[in-house]
C-alpha cells in the first residue's frame, strides 16, 4: 500500500514546499465532481490528522486520507510538462475510465 512520487514530482514538491516556506508534505486525495465522478486533489498539508496515512517518498511526506486511499492506492505521481501546462499526472492503476473533460475518472 503506497502512494509515491517520481523523482521529477518529488523535485517539484520539494521546491514548492520550499517556496511556500512551510508545510508537512502534500495531500493526495480524491473528491467527487466532474462528469465521471471523481477528481484528484493535491494540497499542501500543514497538519496531519488521525485518519491520514503517511507515506514517505524521496524523503517527502505524501499524506492520503483513509477514504481516498481505496481509490488511489498504488498511484504514482509524476510531474510533467505538456505543452505550456506543467503539472502533476496521476498514474493510477485503479482507473478504468476517464471522462472527456479530462477532469474526472472512475475506478
Amino acid at each position: 500500500m503506497a502512494v509515491s512520487l517520481t523523482e521529477a514530482a518529488a523535485k517539484h514538491v520539494r521546491r514548492s514546499l520550499d517556496k511556500r516556506g512551510k508545510g508537512e508534505g502534500i495531500r493526495v486525495g480524491i473528491r467527487t465532481t466532474g462528469c465521471s465522478g471523481m477528481a484528484y486533489v493535491l494540497e499542501y498539508v500543514d497538519e496531519v490528522s488521525a485518519e491520514d496515512e503517511v507515506f514517505e517518498s524521496h524523503g517527502l511526506k505524501v499524506i492520503v486520507d483513509a477514504n481516498s486511499l481505496d481509490f488511489i492506492d498504488g498511484t504514482e505521481l509524476d510531474f510533467v510538462r505538456e505543452g505550456v501546462n506543467e503539472g502533476f499526472k496521476f498514474n493510477n492503476p485503479n482507473v478504468r475510465g476517464e471522462c472527456g473533460c479530462g477532469e474526472s475518472f472512475s475506478v
Binding site: 514538491v13 505538456e82 503539472g87
Partner: peptide, 21 residues
C-alpha cells in the same frame, strides 16, 4: 488505457474551494 487526456493537477492551499463547473 485511453490516450492520456487527464488534466494536469497543481498543488493548492488546503481548503481551497474548487468548483469546476
Amino acid at each position: 488505457m485511453k490516450k492520456n487526456t487527464m488534466a494536469l493537477v497543481q498543488i493548492v492551499e488546503p481548503n481551497t474551494p474548487v468548483d469546476k463547473s
